[in-house]
Design a protein around this nucleic acid. Structure first.
Lengths: 303, 303
DNA sequence: TGGCCTGATACCTGAAAGGTATCGCCATTT
DNA sequence: AAATGGCGATACCTTTCAGGTATCAGGCCA
């Protein structure tokens, strides 16, 4: 049984006339008659009552007509849904990102993607860089937004934004009164850094900056992620060095200050597996590229 | 899109291996690969992720897999239901019969048909011969059980049973005490006969018998059908001449007596349109034939 | 009875599906 | 790093089957 036959059958059942049905199907009458005969032979069932000049559907024909209509409708639905998902207009996209990305451009990027593809279900989660890498490799996620970028030959990378580093201080810090703080003056402070594992990590980037400024922090507190680090800062455990965008979201007990000293900045990068050509992923990367260009332009304009 | 492709697709989706899927489908691998490729081209959608040695379904593939399974299942249902109805195992059969048939062999015949074909919905109705003829011609019914048989070249006929005529008397009749009644003695009685229209009808058959016995009923009461006639007998309006089988069902106010005199008997005949080859009809006629043979044999045995 | 309408049949052509052989890529092995 | 094996894709041929044209056959009407 093939869909074509069902279509032919429905045409004849509608017209109750082989000639007209053939015209409607844009074909000649003989092959249509043959297809219907084949369908009847296939089922071993009389579908049309040809005893008089006017053709009529038999009971079996009426039953098949019902089913055929439904089948063709459902085929159409299957077609359209598959195409929609296959073109990225629907489906699912699993995005994970570092905690420090939840304040800057990323939320806007995600909102933009959602406005373009509202039917795509987003599964968002937050991880540190090491977890991002593992999850992307094992295909638990489709997109990893990492800081700094993940070193893996299997990944496709799209830079999202680059930003300067600033200090996050407890509001009772003795540096809170200064508009700018010299990094070199912070040798006696406790630095709250992250992630603890695996090393080397972003923590080591900050320690490298300190070293370049000629000191080594008096004390170190290592947390697993950015969120915990800021929490510790807010309760006065120590200070931290964080991406500038974090300052956009104020938090009780924490104040942000630019610093004087080496500032290599930090970049947020969007990753996907090279072999993941899913349209949802490609579309997300496409929008990421647009955002990166726009962000860069904005950055230039404001600098 | 054709069902074959969906079947192929499901095999590959199940096996996630073209070679094994081809084996399962009892075909070579290259044409299978080509069919899947054609399906993907047709949809304009990637269904399998072939980037690694292990094949995987894409999101679109998963969506199509769901739909394809349902479509094939529903096709199977459509197939089976159509075949069932087409073979007479289900569907609908519209039977109409003369009122006087509701007491004899017909109910048993119908019960027997129902036991063989319990899924066939029966639409039963009662009509007089003239209505039966009209309804059968206009295809409002499939089967007409008439008495006597309908004269129409377009009908197929199966004799169901032949029976003697007996008298139906009010229980207060002066003939009620007799075991047998001479028909010729009934000249002064009111005869309740049916149907009133169209004439000549069964009423005229009875009048013919009277004439042959040398009398003409003193009074005549014509009703439209057998049921009304018996009702009039039960309230003492007059007597009637009815098929023997009617006596099997007793009714208050009515007693039945064989009569002495000309008794041409009466036959119940099952009719269907010659051009109605519906399996439900053919099966009913088949069972009717069996019943007629059996009824005839029974009749011989008991005579 | 002849003409017409309509579906069925005969026969041919072309498109498409299936088969065999083989290629090319990747992954594993030594 | 080259060899090997597994697997899907491609090339090319064969076969099958759907579609087209011409024509037949039966029912209906004049």
């Amino acid at each position: 049984m093939e869909f074509r036959r069902l279509k032919y059958f429905l045409a004849v059942a509608d017209e109750l006339h082989f000639g007209r049905a053939a015209t409607r199907l844009d074909m000649a009458q003989p092959p249509l008659s043959r297809q219907i005969a084949a369908l009847e032979a296939d089922l071993g069932v009389q579908l049309f009552d040809r005893s008089r000049s006017q053709i009529r559907l038999t009971q079996a024909g009426l039953v098949l007509q019902d089913h055929a209509r439904q089948l063709l409708d459902r085929l159409d639905v299957a077609y359209r849904e598959t195409k929609l998902v296959g073109s990225g207009g629907a489906g699912r996209l699993r995005i994970a990102f570092v905690g420090s990305a939840s304040h800057g451009l990323l939320p806007t990027l995600i909102k933009s993607y959602r406005s373009f593809y509202p039917e795509v279900e987003l599964a968002l989660s937050s991880m540190n860089n090491a977890e991002l890498q593992r999850a992307l490799v094992s295909r638990e996620i489709d997109i990893a937004v990492a800081r700094p970028e993940l070193r893996d030959e299997e990944f496709r990378r799209e830079p999202l934004c680059r930003e300067r580093l600033i200090l996050a201080l407890p509001d009772n810090s003795r540096f809170a009164a200064q508009d700018q703080v010299r990094l070199a003056d912070l040798g006696d402070q406790t630095f709250v850094l992250y992630p603890r594992r695996p090393r080397p990590s972003y923590a080591d980037v900050v320690l490298g900056i300190c070293e370049r400024e000629g000191f080594k922090p008096a004390a170190l507190e290592l947390t697993q992620d950015f969120q915990s680090a800021i929490s510790l800062v807010s309760v006065g455990v120590g200070l931290s060095v964080v991406p500038e965008s974090v300052a956009r979201t104020q938090r009780p007990g924490v104040i942000y200050r630019p610093y004087i000293g080496h500032n290599p900045g930090t970049a947020l990068t969007v990753h996907a597996r090279l072999d993941n050509r899913a349209p949802q992923v490609m579309n997300f990367l496409e929008i990421t590229r647009k955002f990166a260009r726009k962000g860069q332009a904005d950055g230039r304009a404001s600098s």
